[in-house]
Amino acid sequence: MGLSGYLIEKYNNMAGAYTCNRLVEEAKRLGIDLRIIGIHDTNVTADGIFNCGQLLGKRDFVINRYKWGKLKDRINELGERSYNDIHSFNRYINKYQQLRDIKSLDFLVPKYVLGTALLPYEEVVRKVGTPFVAKGLESSMGEQISLVESPEDYRRLLDTYGPEKELLFEEYISTSYGRDMRIFSLRGEVIAGMIRKSQGDFRANVALGASVEPLEITDSIRLLARDIYLCSSVEFVGIDLLFGEDKPYFCEINVMPGLEGIEESSGKNIAGMIMETIKGDFEDEQTGS
């Protein structure tokens, strides 16, 4: 019997979603039965896990591409392996946890404060400078990220998020305005990289319309990717770096990175590399290597 897996996404029907459809396409090429399981089409009872009324059975592996809630954790119990491993996935969704755990001599870490918008503005400025960047801890695609340039901007955070939401307040790296680096790493090996450039926005997310171009991969970039893997154990990861004067600054890692921009800019079949790696794990297991 061939290899089979679940790909956890938002909905069963992900028409037009580049990354998950590329993974399914490459799985099919390799003879792998990869089924998309939408969290919003799934429920759990004492009798099991149901997707659109159908009881889900065991499969060889699970690919995690949805951040929120407990349903994804329960679905992971149906797979012999998970990619990225659900424990690392859950831990490193959180941007504060990344800053706390991930270290390398080949990048700098921005000054930061973890707190809520009830912190006095002057206290945040004293610790990270002005302007500064405010980030939601589990946001993606440029959402919940804003540049705070005044007390009025800061007060808007409280109006938007309320007094309970924890935020990261980070030093603003002006040398990286409107541009950053995205590296795709597979088990600590750099597969591809790109420079993302925005027009008129300090954020450089492809989801917000940034353009992409290839990035030259240096020995320093290879070393920091290795360090990030050793710190996090995240196997398939997007690494975002900001341009500094001497060294790059660590921005964040993405445990469910999109593939469209990186495949476009590099010309590489990254979805295929992911699926080939997964297939190889099970082949190695069967041969005892």
Rank of each mutant, 00 (worst) to 15 (best):
L3I: 11
A17W: 11
C20R: 11
L23F: 04
E26H: 14
K28P: 03
T42A: 06
V44K: 03
N51P: 08
L56H: 00
G57K: 11
K58L: 08
R59S: 07
D60L: 04
F61L: 10
R65L: 10
I75E: 01
L78Y: 01
G79E: 03
R81S: 12
S82M: 14
S82N: 07
Y92H: 01
N94F: 00
N94Q: 07
L99G: 05
I102F: 03
P110K: 04
V113T: 10
V113P: 00
G115P: 04
T116P: 04
L118S: 09
L119P: 02
P120R: 07
G129V: 02
T130F: 11
V133C: 15
S139G: 12
M141R: 15
Q144W: 06
S146P: 05
L147Y: 09
D153N: 15
R155I: 02
L158E: 04
L158G: 00
G162S: 14
S174Y: 00
G178T: 07
R179S: 13
R179G: 12
D180M: 09
I183Y: 01
S185F: 08
K197A: 13
R203L: 12
E216N: 08
I221G: 08
L224F: 12
E235Y: 01
I239R: 11
I239W: 09
F243I: 11
E245L: 10
E245C: 07
E252M: 05
V255C: 02
V255R: 04
L259W: 06
L259H: 14
G261R: 03
I262N: 00
I270N: 09
M273R: 11
T277N: 15
E283S: 08
D284S: 11
T287W: 07
S289C: 12
